[in-house]
């Protein structure tokens, strides 16, 4: 079963992600892919995450495929215009990549090439529409394709956005533009996430809750202060503090596992997307704790 079929089968889906390195040494990446394959249902490959220049997502997606795992191609609009994006999408298609996650992308300003020209010829909603067009055999200019694509396209949403209303409006636009699954920004407040899911469940889309492992109370405070759309509730910070330095990471993993268990048992969403950010080896551990493997 591929990722789309697995989602449609009603199984509680797990995706994780790998971040391509800066440079050509991909030994660690091979290791992570081997570690995660067979355990997670698909692997996101980030696209110059945080606007830091690295190996392109497309090449690493092909490597994920070669390992026998299923990639989700993350595509941002920051670095390519509509010609580049569509061209890469066609390329992805012939390489056998089926899943694509359409994003606007962190601004150049966040990254390591601050003088680069930000492109943003398209943004997430328009990129989704472009993918839908390619699936239907037409490019953005209305030209016929010699062979169309068959992408399963998704997008991201931030349920903790402040203010939330315009974010929800954009969520609806993404769905109308063809998004069929969503991976969310990191969720730490499951009750609040349930409110979001009440809205999301009105639409025929699959939603995977984003999870980022908390390593310490300090990290939680950092996220609250600096990262848009993430809110770690006070009681979790207390829990991490109480665990002490030694046990903080363990507790963070317990929290993630607990949240996954609850989301699955209460059928809150269709799966989870675990962003381990350098701790890929912890993903199977969390899945085990959550009773998924």
């Amino acid at each position: 079963m591929n990722f789309e079929e697995t989602l449609n089968s009603g199984k509680f889906v797990v995706t994780a992600e790998v971040g391509p390195p800066k440079g050509t040494d991909i030994a660690a990446l091979h290791h992570d892919i081997e570690l995660l394959k067979g355990k997670v249902d698909a692997l996101n490959v980030t696209d110059n995450q945080s606007a830091v220049m690295r190996i392109c997502s497309l090449a690493i997606c092909k490597i994920v495929l070669d390992h026998g795992a299923e990639p989700i191609l993350q595509m941002t609009c920051r670095d390519r215009n509509r010609i580049g994006l569509q061209s890469d999408l066609l390329g992805a298609s012939v390489l056998g990549i089926r899943n694509v996650l359409c994003m606007t992308g962190d601004h150049v300003f966040a990254g390591d090439h601050k003088g680069a020209k930000p492109v943003y010829d398209l943004e997430s909603v328009q990129l989704l529409a472009a993918v839908q067009g390619l699936n239907g055999g037409k490019d953005m200019a209305g030209n016929d394709l010699l062979g169309c694509t068959n992408f399963f396209q998704g997008a991201v949403v931030t349920p903790e956005a402040n203010p939330l209303a315009p974010q929800l409006a954009k969520f609806e636009k993404k769905i109308r533009a063809g998004a069929r699954f969503f991976q969310t920004q990191a969720i730490y407040d499951v009750d609040k996430f349930k409110d979001f899911m009440v809205v999301a469940r009105r639409f025929p889309v699959k939603v995977l809750a984003g999870l980022v492992i908390l390593k310490s109370a300090g990290m939680a405070n950092f996220l609250n202060k600096n990262v848009p759309g993430i809110r770690v509730p006070e009681d979790l910070i207390e829990e991490l503090k109480a665990a002490g330095k030694e046990k903080a990471l363990e507790t963070g993993m317990d929290i993630a596992a607990r949240h996954i268990r609850r989301m699955k048992e209460e059928n809150i969403c269709d799966g989870v997307h675990i962003m381990a950010i350098g701790m890929e080896d912890k993903v199977p551990v969390i899945m085990e704790k959550a009773g998924l493997i």
Binding site: C77, T104, E123, Q126, A161, P228
Partner: peptide, 11 residues
């Protein structure tokens, strides 16, 4: 980013 259809996740 010159986005035309609503806020990004960075707000």
């Amino acid at each position: 980013k010159g986005i035309l259809n609503g806020p990004c996740g960075g707000t």
